Each structure stands twice: as structure tokens, then as C-alpha cells.
Amino acid sequence: MSAVIARVLDPARATRAMVGVLAIMLFLTLLAAAAGIGAGRGAAALGARLSGRATVQFTDADPAARGAAAARTLAALRSSPAVTRARAVPRAELARLVAPWLGSAADDPDLPMPELIDLELAPGDDALPAARAVLRRAAPGAVIDSHGAAVAPLARLLRVASILAVAVAALMVGASAAVVVLAARAGLEAHRATIAVMHGLGATDAQVAGLFQRRVARDAATAALVATAAAGVTAVLLIPAFAVGAGALGDIVALGAQGWSVLAALPFVFVGFAALVARRTVTHALARTL
């Protein structure tokens, strides 16, 4: 009986095609999941890093008045409980910031530069309004810019990209399930006569379903190995280039230990899911037709 059961599924052309399709599906799922995790972490990191930061800018045309307003405001902000740290940005640092656009002219001492104060705000939603109130009293003409508000559109874009990537991964999983269902039904149809003989010899529906489950699990495991290897090669090729291009922001969209753990678990979940879908498909079909 075991020898008959072992030959129910023909391990030829159709099986190889299913392995290839499943490998492609899992490879795309891994890429989509990585993109979703990276984008989601990026949105959270941007919010955490910049939500408590702000910059005060003084643009008075008179350098003396500009410097006096900056000094007065700096002292007022440092005494405010809404501000945990305030520092005047040195001119040399400003020159480095504008050097990519102005070149050597950025070091010209006659070049007018605004006075800037870099702020770290206390936790809480009321910190920024409190800092604005201090600024209105000390220097009404100054402007305060919230870093979190400046990058809010980018953070929203990253969150949308994360949702889309998760949706794509879910679609890939659904398509993989459809492939398994079609393969299981095709196998049942191709071996209907053999399965009828097996039933006559005493085989149960559970035994037949277990055969399909084991076969699909082996095929899915092969596909998982191929897809994981391809995803690993892709990561090796892309991560160094991305790290160079992202520069200081590279850690914002890094996957992190939890992200890599999720990606490492996906192939195993994929194999178990494919085997479960195959078993349920076969069990349901046998209960209806045989």
C-alpha cells in the first residue's frame, strides 16, 4: 500500500512548474515584506528622532540686532521648562551646511548668515506651543520651525509605502495559495482512478490527503530554498549600495533584529501554509466527490 501511495503524485513536469512559481511568489513576498518593514520602521524612526527637535531662525538685516535678539532668546528658551536643550548654531557649522551650494563663498566673513538656535523640546504635545510663546515674548520677529512638521509628509509617505508593501505581500501569499489549490486539484483529477483503487484497498481520505500534503510540503520547501537564496543574493548586492546612498539616514530604514527575524521565519511559515492548503483542498474535494 505504501508503494502505491508513494506513486500517486507524478513528480515530473507539473511539479517542477509549481516549484518555480512558488519560488517566484515567495521571493516577491520576501522583497515586499522587507520593503514594508523598512518603510514602517523608517516612519516610526523619523517621528521619534525629529518630533522633539526645532530650529529658531533670526533674519534681521542688522547683524547687531540679530545677534542681540538671538542671545536674548537663547537665555529665555534655556529657562523654559518646555525646552530641554538649546544651543546657538556656530557660523562655521552654518557655512558647512551651505557649502554644497555656495562653495568657497560660504567661508566669506562678509556673507550674511542668519542666527540659528537648535532646540530639543520636552516630551509632550504642549512643548512646541510653549516654546512659541517664549519666542513671541523674546523676539517676535524670529521664526521657529518644527523638524517633525517638516518631515511629516515623508513620514506619511513611508507609512503608505509600508501598507502597500504589506498588501503586496498578502496578495503574493494569496496567489501562492491559489497555485497550491490548482496543483492539488490537478493531481486529484489526474490520479482519480488510482485514488479510487486505493480506497478500494482500504486507504482513507486522510491518507490520501497526507500524501498530497507531504508532496506539496517538499515542493514548497524546495521553492523556499531557492527563493531564500535569491533573496539573500539580492540583499548582499543591494545593502552595501543602499548604505552608501542613504548615508546618515541608513539606520532609519534598517530592518532591525525583529525585521530580519520576520524575514527568516517567512519561508518556514510559507512551507507550512502551503502544506495546510493542500491538505484542506484535497480533504474537501474527496469529501465532495469520492
Rank of each mutant, 00 (worst) to 15 (best):
M1D: 07
A23E: 06
F27E: 04
L31D: 08
A45Q: 03
A45L: 04
L50A: 10
S51N: 02
R53Y: 15
T55Q: 07
P63E: 01
A64D: 11
R66P: 06
A68L: 14
A75P: 08
V83A: 06
R87C: 12
V89N: 09
A92P: 05
L102A: 11
S104W: 07
A106K: 05
L111D: 03
E115D: 13
E115V: 08
I117R: 07
L121E: 02
G124E: 02
G124V: 04
A127S: 06
L128F: 13
A130W: 09
A133S: 07
G141A: 13
V143G: 11
D145L: 15
G148E: 02
G148F: 06
A149G: 03
A152I: 07
R156M: 10
S162C: 08
A169P: 01
L171G: 13
L171D: 01
G174S: 05
A175S: 13
A177W: 03
V181L: 09
L182I: 14
R185P: 00
G187D: 04
H191I: 09
V197Y: 10
V197S: 01
A209E: 10
F212G: 01
R214Y: 07
V216S: 11
A217D: 11
A227K: 07
A229R: 07
A246V: 04
G247E: 06
G250S: 15
V253R: 01
G256A: 00
F273I: 10
V277H: 02
R279Y: 02
V282A: 09
T283A: 14
H284G: 15
A285H: 03
L286E: 11
R288T: 13
T289Y: 07
T289W: 12
T289G: 06
